[in-house]
Amino acid sequence: MVAVNVLLGLMILAGLVALEMRNLRVAIYSLGAGGVLFIVISFLMGALEVGIGGVILVAILIPLLIWAVGRTTGEDTTARMRLEVNEIFVLISIVAFIVVLLVVIIPLFPELPSVPEAVEGPMGLSILREVLVLLAALAGVWAVLRLVGRRGDK
């Protein structure tokens, strides 16, 4: 478990780096490093399916993000947020959420009853399901990106 905790710490670090970097490509590579750590943790704990899911996630998400950065902007030039009424409300919400999450919810997790063992259906069907979800997403991407048949712009 210690190794897992250390790797999780590294993931948190990679996540922070990804969010703080002004250069978006570096930020994405850092996210990719976090993804690799995720895969390693899953395999380490024996979660084969989740690990494969992580591989798919990294393999699709990182190239897509790089492509998106290529088509938009490579530099995060946005200013940091100023403190307004709206932002104060946001901060209060986040603090309340952190308190509830860490104080109330997380201590309950180890006491949860063990998860019932699943009787999986035919293996092909569950793969079919994930493939369907991804296909639907790709259809959505096509619909969003297509320019023909669009009114109002371009």
């Binding site: 704990m45 989740v50 996630l57 993000l65 492509w67 998106a68 979800v133 991804l134 790709l138 991407v141």
Partner: peptide, 24 residues
Amino acid sequence: VGGISQTMGLVALIGGLAVMTLMI
């Protein structure tokens, strides 16, 4: 790792991936 837990994790990952591709 138990089967249903793995299935749920996989669903979360793939669903999240689908959402993120749409966001991109």
